[in-house]
């Protein structure tokens, strides 16, 4: 390990709990500094009024948002779109990943398409999705599914290649058919790449769906965000962004935990 750190321990005159938990102490200090700086900026008048609203008004907006029943209707719409997009994009990504990862020929013939199309900005497909699926939830689901498809397919294809050949030979020696091979050998052996792909897929699916909602929709959290921009209701916009980030980071952590990613031993 390289030599690091001059700032390795708090000063001797710091309270004992700070010396015992310097990381927590620093975290608290950073949070307090940021919040104080924010509040001072909000009260300074340097920026246009409400561009940086006071913490109190953000807190009030957060409370109002969370206690408003219509918010949950919008949230349900967004969850429905994201859920369906994850199922469609995830399952198709899984199938394509297994097909491509299971054969050298398929890998060399088709994986470059996935590999190079994966990092393209997917939102540019939205006009096409509107034409194909209309302005309702269909186009948002399609956007989410396209976004989710690529990371899942690439991770599963990579995972297929990493499967222990012995396991595959065992399956074949038991004369397992294709379905049995997929469900008994491939899927259990690829649990971590699949979960990793789903985790990445969920992040981009969320982005794809919500961006589509901000562009053209009359329902969903994305619509609420762009509506608060249109009405210049900045405290509500901040509160919605906080809710979105909490949901995104929480869902990401949850998938990782459910999939046991945090239990992988790193050597």
């Amino acid at each position: 390990m390289a030599e690091t750190g001059r700032l390795t321990a708090p000063a001797a005159y710091a309270p004992s709990w700070m010396r015992e938990h310097p990381v927590t102490a620093l975290r608290i200090a950073i949070i307090i500094t940021v919040l104080t700086g924010w509040e001072l900026l909000a009260r300074s008048g340097w920026l246009y009024r409400d561009v940086v609203p006071s913490l109190l008004s953000i807190g009030r907006a957060l409370y109002e948002t969370l206690s408003d029943p219509t918010f949950y209707l919008h949230l349900t719409t967004t969850f429905y779109e994201i859920g369906l997009a994850m199922v469609i994009g995830g399952l198709s990504g899984l199938a394509v990943g297994i097909l491509i990862g299971g054969s050298k020929l398929m890998q060399h013939a088709y994986e470059p398409f996935l590999y190079y199309l994966g990092p393209c900005p997917k939102i540019i497909f939205f006009p096409v999705m509107i034409m194909w699926f209309g302005v309702g939830p269909g186009s948002k689901i399609a956007m989410g599914a396209i976004s989710c498809f690529f990371p899942v397919a690439l991770n599963v294809a990579g995972g297929m290649r990493e499967i222990d050949k012995v396991l595959i030979r065992v399956g074949r020696s038991f004369r397992a058919n294709t379905w049995q091979m997929v469900t008994k050998i491939y899927m259990p052996a690829m649990r971590h790449p699949i979960i990793n792909g789903m985790r990445l897929g969920l992040g981009v699916c969320l982005i794809g769906t919500l961006l589509a909602e901000t562009k053209l929709s009359n329902r969903g959290i994305g619509f609420l965000v762009i509506q608060s921009y249109t009405l210049f209701n900045m405290p509500q916009m901040y509160s919605l962004l906080i809710v979105l980030f909490v949901i995104a980071i929480g869902a990401n952590a949850l998938i990782g935990r459910l999939g046991g990613l945090d239990t992988i031993r790193r050597t």
Binding site: L210, Y229, M234, M237, F245, A248, N252
Partner: peptide, 17 residues
């Protein structure tokens, strides 16, 4: 966590700023 967050959704905020 920031790297995993959907930061692009902040674009309406940036439009205001």
């Amino acid at each position: 966590a920031v790297a995993a967050a959907p930061l692009v959704l902040m674009y309406p905020l940036y439009l205001v700023i």
